[in-house]
Design a protein around this nucleic acid. Structure first.
Lengths: 334, 334
DNA sequence: CTGAAAGCGCTTACAG
DNA sequence: CTGAAAGCGCTTACAG
């Protein structure tokens, strides 16, 4: 079966391809009767617009790229899901790209996306240096940066107030009476992680309580890295009574390790996670965590991107969300 | 900055566009010296092939579609991740489509994918009736079906031997001495679920032990549906001593509910999950489960699809994987 | 209210 | 070993 083109439709309906195109795209008035004929022809022939042709001619592909570290990580998986939902509602398909935070992979994906004429790109937690983004800038591809700060003012940005979040969690633990609080951060070059740690430090300063650098280590946001990080912290002579872990997945790994060591959570050690993934509630013990309003953030990201696609030279926007602490079973008074 | 085209490269290198194209695609021999000039021109101009144009002309978009129920579900998230990895390695980007098992959504996505001239489509656990796939067939778009049986012989298929898996798990529990085994299945119209239940029934038959239909209910593979399903099972006067749950996510929900009810897993009730997602090992208690070799399956799916793209009329293939039981803490002798 | 025609940037059959 | 040129299927400025 040969492809049905707009010419076939035009012939079948007895009109020009111009008219067919305008009916499809609703780009100019077409008489009701003519429109009906065209739609009928489309239906009988089973016509589908060829996006490659449209993309070549009109320069829009109705496709956006989503660059994330790892779709198999629940936090990013939820993000991906929501972005795809809102994107599809707005008329876009999304190409997913997993970078594992490797600059080379990110660069390769950006290359491919530029070649594919995507209408825009969303970067979540992109760990790479700004140079990697140059192809997007030079080819004038709109993009939105989420979950990561960039010093250069190159794009719209959506983020969480990570410093405040770090402060809130630490303040909560100090309020519970904990005086030795450990910390499993994210990768050290990752800005949300740095900011949460800044909040952690500020809370200690405001309380006039010192923190022990030996109780702070970094993980990779994965379950297993949380497990190992706990080993590192627990080898010290001085043990913390509470732990602030920068992702729920790592918190699950850490709690699991603690349980393996015969410890009780929260009696022996309180643990706070981050993200509020669905599992945090279902895990035993359920995990006290800091909620990121992912759905709302995903919606905002897609909105900013579609706006940017329409108005390339509009003023840049930076939208900062405030999350909230969700108290569950994994924490208790000291 | 205007788009750099193949003509600009040709002019810069002092050759024809034909030669540039052949250098890029390695489709015919080009003298080393000429090739060098072309590559140099590409580099200095920052040329990137326009995939829309190539797609229109050559009919290949280097893009495949992935249709899954829900990328936020860890099992599918791991699938997605692996398929994207293998796909990208093979030179394809993947467009992700979340259907929530709704026929309308699946149809809308298939429409969009056909319009986008994707080179192929992968359907994981597609719950829809075969009619939804008609646009793929009529437009001659290669596709592979995974994790779902289709009566019609329309595509290459990759699946797990679900009947055997159901038998193996049930046989294991019977061997442990359990005589009242409950079951939380997947949706009733979902073939892997039906087959696992068939295996469950066969094991009971071979042992000459009856099972109680009141102990069998269905969930939607989500954590919360596993939680609710346990309520339903536990309201019976006759309680099972073991539970075979058709996904780890549902198993986590069920275990969580059991713990909430003051039960001990596995002392009061043994629980077996399915899939062996990363979390099954980390959960407390760690979950006995049936391992699906996702990575290998994902690799095979991508291989079948890329082969099919190259040889549209080759013989259809059906590859069935055998999984294996992984014994952990959530099960014990009766 | 509608149409004829140019052209987007490639690939490839044909030619030498 | 390389090139001139047609054409993929659309959209849209121009015209009436």
């Amino acid at each position: 079966m040969a492809r049905v083109t707009i010419r076939d439709v035009a012939k079948e309906a007895g009109v020009s391809t111009t008219t067919v195109s305008h009916v499809i795209n609703e780009t100019r008035f077409v008489e009701e009767k003519t429109r009906a004929k065209v739609n009928e022809a489309i239906a009988t022939l089973g016509y589908r617009v060829n996006i490659a042709a449209r993309s070549l001619r009109a320069g829009r592909s109705q496709t956006i790229g989503l660059i994330i570290p790892d779709a198999a990580n629940l936090f990013f998986a939820e993000y991906l899901r929501k972005i795809e939902d809102f994107g599809f509602k707005a008329g876009y398909n999304v190409i997913v790209c997993n970078t594992d935070n490797e600059t080379d992979k990110e660069a390769a994906y950006i290359d491919a996306l530029v070649s594919k004429q995507v209408d825009g790109v969303i970067l979540i937690s992109s760990g790479s240096d700004p140079e990697t983004l140059n192809p997007l800038i030079s080819h004038d591809v709109p993009f939105v940066i989420a979950d990561r700060e960039f010093s250069a003012d190159v794009a719209d940005v959506v983020s969480l107030d990570n410093e405040q979040a770090g402060f809130d969690v630490t303040n909560y633990l100090l309020n519970l009476g904990h005086r030795k609080i450990g910390c499993i951060t994210g990768p050290n070059n990752f800005s949300p992680s740095i900011q949460r740690l800044n909040g952690f430090i500020r809370a200690h300063k405001e309380w006039g309580i010192p923190y022990d650098p030996e109780h702070i280590t970094s993980g990779k946001f994965t379950l297993s890295s949380g497990f190992s990080a706990f080993d590192w912290i627990w080898q010290n002579n001085s043990k913390p009574s509470a732990l602030f872990v920068f992702s729920d997945m790592m918190a699950i790994g850490a709690i699991n390790n603690a349980i393996t060591k015969g410890l009780d959570v929260p009696k022996d050690i309180s643990v706070v996670g981050f993200d509020n993934i669905e599992l945090a509630e279902a895990f035993a013990p359920s995990i006290t965590t800091f909620n990121q309003p992912i759905e709302k953030m995903a919606e905002t990201i897609v909105e900013l991107l579609t706006d940017r696609i329409k108005h390339k030279s509009a003023n840049r926007r930076r939208i900062v969300f405030r999350g909230s602490l969700i108290i569950r079973e994994s924490t208790t008074k000291y």
